[in-house]
Design a protein around this nucleic acid. Structure first.
Lengths: 207, 207
DNA sequence: ACCTGAACACCGTTCAAGT
DNA sequence: ACCTGAACACCGTTCAAGT
């Protein structure tokens, strides 16, 4: 009944806003939803199109190929990761130590709560185009800037700030990935245990 | 000419030792070689079979499915990673600091030199079966044991050794992955810069 | 016990054709 | 400008059949 009323009817009224000119966005949202529902889902373009209610060739009007859709999705993930880290920053009066812990926790939480998306962001399928894009590095810029300020104010051990930033990024990225992979033992994955790991690095940053 | 001499001839003489009873090993070796030649290679079972000189269904006599071959390959990778870390350990008289740096460097080098294999080891395709297998955790056991000894001898900051081990694993894993992904800036990926990142964590381990 | 070839249900991508 | 359906060259996996 519903379908026979004509597939060309504008479904813009209230509900789904597919097929009305923003298929590009609809495809990205659909793909992300599927990734969230099943983080282990094997990404297929045809299934995204199916669920978005279009033919399996329609996506090619908006993305060069499957890799391009994946890349855009990954970049959106980096944007959101950055937002999550910024949102976690305490006010300007806070101590560096508290700031570091807040941002690091927010970073790890983002990954653990969005495992499918986070994995895609760092996957090979996303491709070099993603990792060369400033939007991906910007996600970690939040912490880099924090460390640079700490260095300026003499709150950190003297060392090249880029190396310290690399150590921080590697630490939170590593914790996120190994947690997602289930490679940490049960005693290690709790909030308290992860805090301890973050603090171990923190103590290497402090003078 | 070559092929018409009979495909059933024993090719065991000197060269390739395929089809003579160890196809399982041959498939694993072939797959690993292809991964080494092109780290971005999209793993297909049919191509492995083709290159190994058998029909595309032959692998099913030795592996339940594609995932099983991937899993075994990943476990072999963890074995070799462990060996690489053990081989890098200096003699029993060495200082903890030197030991830590040697093992950490060996770990990162293994990943950077075997990007395809390393990525597979931590990929989702390898599957939970891999990450639940003791062989995967054993790779990092080398460093865990080192830290436990350091704790016993009072050479480390007092803290739960498991958290320190988690921090170490996350650090080297993160450095390896981000280097492979090209997410570190040019100044960051040099040997000296990576040492600095490792030392940042080291200083958080030491009292 | 091990291997093959045909067969099935999928993919990603291209292209002529429609509006 | 955007979408569709048929078509092509692939996959992973199953299964009857061969030795």
């Amino acid at each position: 009944m519903d379908d026979s009323t004509g597939s060309r009817a504008k479904a813009t009224a209230g509900g789904r806003r597919y097929h009305h000119g923003d298929l590009r966005r609809a495809l990205l949202e659909t793909a992300e939803a599927m990734l969230r529902e099943d983080p282990s889902w094997q990404f297929t373009l045809r299934e995204v199109a199916r669920r978005a209610g279009v033919s399996h060739t329609a996506p090619y009007n908006h993305f060069e190929d499957k890799a391009a859709l994946l890349a855009e999705l990954a970049l959106m993930g980096f944007d959101r990761l950055r937002e999550a880290c910024l949102a976690a920053m305490p006010g300007p009066g806070a101590e560096l130590r508290a700031e570091y812990l807040a941002v690091a926790r927010a970073y790890v939480s983002f990954g653990v709560e969005n495992p499918g998306l986070y994995r895609l962001m760092f996957s090979q399928e996303a491709g070099a185009a993603v990792h060369e894009n400033p939007r991906s590095r910007a996600a970690f810029g939040v912490m880099l800037e924090m460390l640079e300020r700490g260095q300026r104010e003499g709150l950190l051990r003297k060392r090249r700030v880029r190396s310290q930033a690399a150590a921080c990024w590697a630490e939170v990225h590593g914790i996120t990935m190994l947690t997602m992979d289930g490679l940490f033992r049960r005693e290690t994955v709790g909030r308290k245990a992860l805090d301890e790991a973050l603090e171990t690095l923190l103590e290497g940053l402090e003078p």
